[in-house]
Design a protein around this nucleic acid. Structure first.
Length: 261
DNA sequence: AGTACCACCTGACGGC
DNA sequence: TGCCGTCAGGTGGTAC
């Protein structure tokens, strides 16, 4: 479930497993995920190289290469990472394999092939080209208020708009709205300043909590929506039934009692 | 500017 | 058990 907290966990995973060790070779199984890049170029750039550090912006992960440039990973809907030595941990959906001299490999895994892999020299330039807004976990309160005041439309749609704020997806937008007690289909212009500040506070709190629990929904606090984000489940606060509606074709789950329009 | 809908891709799940 | 339709955390493009 690759949204901001998941990406933050991926970042920590790379940081704790894959930095500062020589890459023996790389292998790309399918070039479909590559953007502006050939498989040959990717493989030759990684071989004999080393990862120095990582950066995250929204749902994108940037891994700095010792010899210059960054490996960029986007995880789509089903992307994940694996770092292991044992062959029986092999995954049929692995696409990019990075083999280290120590016998371990880092694998980019994607069931649905909706992710993206590329190489860039300049992260800020990449962010500008993708027109991404500020990272949702790093944006400050004044920036956030300004972004909201410059938007119209539904609050949920706006929170998920990567060009406004980067990092929030379908699942976490539901959680942020649930914690803020705001209906997903509330129009931004109908929110008062207090609501916007609540959203900002809850957004940060949700990220902090999710990352603390390694982005594993079952470990989230009992007051969280995500572990019970399904129709016919009971609202963690009022125990009434969770409802599902659609916004631009995407499902939104909320509590009609706690989140009034 | 914002919304709905389609496409991409393919596994998971529920119903019959 | 098996087939089939529908749905799914992502983004990007189009028509209105």
């Amino acid at each position: 479930m690759p949204e901001l907290p998941d990406l933050e966990i991926f970042k920590q995973y790379i940081d704790s497993t894959s930095l500062h060790q020589e890459i023996e070779r790389a292998y790309i199984k399918n070039t479909k995920l590559l953007e502006n890049l050939t498989g040959e170029k990717l493989v030759s750039s990684l071989g004999g190289n080393e990862f120095d550090s990582t950066l995250r912006h929204g749902k994108y992960l940037f891994i700095k290469l010792r010899k210059g440039g960054f490996l960029v990973l986007h995880f789509g809907m089903t992307g994940e990472l694996g770092y292991f030595k044992n062959k029986n941990r092999e995954n049929p959906y692995g696409y990019l394999y990075i083999y280290y001299k120590n016998g371990y490999r880092l694998v980019y895994i994607s069931k649905r092939k909706l992710g993206m892999i590329t190489l860039v020299n300049n992260v800020d330039k990449f962010i500008a080209e993708k027109e991404l807004g500020p990272d949702a976990d790093k944006v400050n309160k004044n920036q956030f208020i300004k972004i909201m005041n410059n938007s119209r439309g539904y609050i949920k749609t706006t929170l998920m708009n990567q060009k406004k704020i980067a990092g929030i997806g379908n699942i976490y937008s539901d959680e942020i709205l649930f914690q803020s007690q705001i209906h997903p289909k509330k129009k931004i212009k109908e929110l008062i300043q207090d609501d916007i500040e609540t959203l900002y506070r809850k957004m940060k709190q949700v990220f902090r909590t999710a990352v603390k629990h390694k982005a594993i929904p079952d470990d989230f606090p009992a007051s969280y929506l995500i572990p019970v984000r399904n129709e016919k489940q009971k609202c963690p606060k009022c125990k009434k039934e969770i409802k599902r509606i659609k916004l631009s074709g995407r499902p939104a789950y909320y509590c009609p009692h706690c989140q009034k329009l």
